[in-house]
Simulated scan of single mutants.
Amino acid sequence: MQPYSSARDEFEGMAPVMLDANENSLGSVGPDDFSRYPDPHQRAIKADLAQLKGVTPENIFLGNGSDEAIDLLVRLTCTPGQDSIVVCPPTYGMYEVAANLNDVRVEQLPLTPDFQLAANAAQLLAASSAKLVFLCSPNNPTGNLLAQDAIEAILRSFKGFVVVDEAYADFAMSPSWTTRLPEFPRLVVLQTFSKAWGLAGLRLGVAYGSPELIAYLNKIKPPYNISAATQQHALAALAAAPQLPEMQAELLNSRRWLAEQLPLLPIVEHVFPSDANFLLVRFNVDATAVYDQLRARGIVVRNRTTQPGCAGSLRLTVGTTDENAQLLQALTEIGAELPTEVATSR
């Protein structure tokens, strides 16, 4: 396949007179000038990110959120109506959505009750003809890291691509799988600027992989998939990267505080260990009733009661110190106010 050749592919940089891309030479409507197309290959961001992550720019694909990379990986590797991917529920729902959109079958390899890969996962995947397996670590919605030796066993036995989604890795105390890229040519690592970097509104996701795979993703992506505004803000964030550890530390302290305080509430049955910026909490009362009562108080959390293995559970994002205190106070009040018939049901 020949990729689309944009004006910015055929001429890089700027010239005194730019009349090649049918842009508006008069400028932009509004206070900021975005009249020129952005760099389709995001070279400046990749250079800074490569230095920060210890990889090369050729290892990096930038997408409109990680969701674009997920969709492109499915389209790149799977023949519609013929191939399959593997997901490990409960997990991030976009993997299955991308498969459904592309007419790709979904095989399920459920996590164990403690949200780890099954002991025979590598053996089962070695026998699978699936083209991709998605491993979310730290996992969403459970918050935990998947065991490193289990992922490594899959990398050594699975014939397809192993996609480790590290959207929440900046909140974990484990090395990124990007450090193992040279060792595993079929490893793809997804990260994002939406979580620890606090740039969810920019929609900037990253896929790290072998230069050969990244070249294919660049071939099939839309030519200008990352806007000039997003690139500007991302470069500013990368320049301010020394601020990141301070934000991480504050969030981790708040996560620790919530994890200590929530089990003291009578309506809380279990707080699952978390390596992310949220906690999965199982209630010994009707979790949907708790969810509704929180909404009535202006506090929105995520209802995960319908997810496999997550019955009776809500996902609580770690907020500011004040927001966390409000959440705890609201849950205390809800526990005291729930009617007896609700408080004794699951």
Score class of each variant (00 low, 15 high):
112 T>D: 09
196 A>P: 07
63 G>M: 04
14 M>D: 14
272 F>M: 12
244 L>E: 08
229 A>Y: 12
259 A>E: 14
251 L>S: 02
36 R>W: 02
326 Q>M: 10
156 R>L: 14
261 Q>F: 01
271 V>N: 08
49 L>S: 02
304 R>L: 05
228 A>Y: 01
99 A>N: 03
43 R>S: 14
225 N>V: 00
311 A>N: 05
13 G>K: 07
218 N>P: 01
18 M>D: 12
300 V>W: 10
309 G>Q: 09
171 F>M: 14
340 T>M: 13
309 G>N: 10
266 P>W: 09
6 S>F: 02
130 A>G: 06
18 M>T: 01
342 V>M: 09
21 A>E: 15
281 V>A: 08
305 T>W: 03
92 Y>E: 05
97 V>E: 13
157 S>H: 09
35 S>R: 15
62 L>H: 02
210 S>G: 03
64 N>I: 03
218 N>T: 00
236 A>K: 11
125 L>S: 07
204 L>F: 11
27 G>H: 07
253 N>E: 14
187 L>I: 06
291 Y>S: 03
346 R>V: 01
93 G>R: 09
260 E>F: 03
80 P>Q: 11
299 I>W: 01
309 G>I: 11
14 M>I: 12
342 V>L: 15
55 V>S: 03
280 L>R: 04
214 I>P: 05
62 L>R: 05
248 Q>Y: 00
64 N>F: 15
164 V>E: 03
55 V>L: 07
29 V>G: 08
212 E>M: 10
242 P>H: 02
58 E>I: 00
2 Q>I: 06
144 N>R: 15
179 T>G: 00
117 L>Y: 10
20 D>A: 10
177 W>D: 09
160 G>N: 02
48 D>V: 07
110 P>E: 13
301 V>A: 08
114 D>I: 08
171 F>N: 03
8 R>W: 07
177 W>K: 09
114 D>V: 11
62 L>C: 05
294 L>A: 05
38 P>I: 04
43 R>W: 11
121 A>Q: 08
209 G>P: 10
139 N>Y: 07
345 S>E: 13
145 L>F: 04
268 V>C: 12
163 V>W: 00
193 F>P: 11
95 Y>H: 13
249 A>H: 12
302 R>E: 14
10 E>N: 04
110 P>S: 11
63 G>A: 04
260 E>H: 07
124 L>H: 02
8 R>Q: 12
6 S>H: 02
203 R>L: 12
204 L>R: 01
110 P>I: 13
273 P>C: 03
265 L>P: 08
178 T>G: 00
184 F>D: 07
175 P>H: 06
19 L>M: 05
337 E>C: 10
129 S>C: 00
127 A>W: 00
312 G>Y: 09
180 R>D: 12
214 I>S: 02
5 S>G: 01
94 M>Q: 13
295 R>E: 13
251 L>M: 14
183 E>C: 05
54 G>Q: 06
